[in-house]
Write a protein that binds this DNA or RNA. Sequence first.
DNA 1: TGGCAGATTTTA
DNA 2: AAAATCTGCCAA
Length: 192
Amino acid sequence: VKRLPKSFFKQETTAVARGLLGKILVHHSPDGETAGRIVETEAYLCQNDPACHAARGMTARNAAMFGPPGTAYVYLIYGMYYCFNVVTAPLGVGEAVLIRALEPLTGLELMAKRRGTCVKKLLAAGPGRLCQAMGIGPGHNGADLSGDVLYLADNGMAVREDIVAAKRVGISVATELPLRFYIRGNPFISRK
DNA sequence: TGGCAGATTTTA
DNA sequence: AAAATCTGCCAA
């Protein structure tokens, strides 16, 4: 497995959202290593997308979204859960890809311990769940995703499966945009 | 299986 | 008050 080059994150945001499907997210935490295959993503754009956190300018929370492509944007949602995003657009432009679901690959015992369940389909199917399973939290906000702790990798294989484009989940504005992408039929996506 | 309340921070 | 969520509880 090879680390994704920085150039990968400089593509258009929707292209990154599609391209991340099938890629591997790896975290070397003090507790151990976890990794999963990305099976579901969502794109959040700076133009004509009021659901994007950056749509109304920079705040303390979303500042990382305006960082260079390949940065992590981790935020707290509903006061309880964290969501992990990959920043895509050039420095100063607020766009990102939300990682919504992983197929667990490595460190399943650690994931189960963190999640409090050993049901594989419940370990990382959902943005809050995958952060919990992977041990991703506020300390990763603004992290460089081509570093040594939290990074994206590729096993070199092209994704053979179909990619479905659908409406995004959990938003109440810009609901019609087909900016959610997932691998058709994959059992680890957050919902059908 | 499906709907809903609750947990709790950030923002408007 | 609503939000890029998840869990447990309830009813059928």
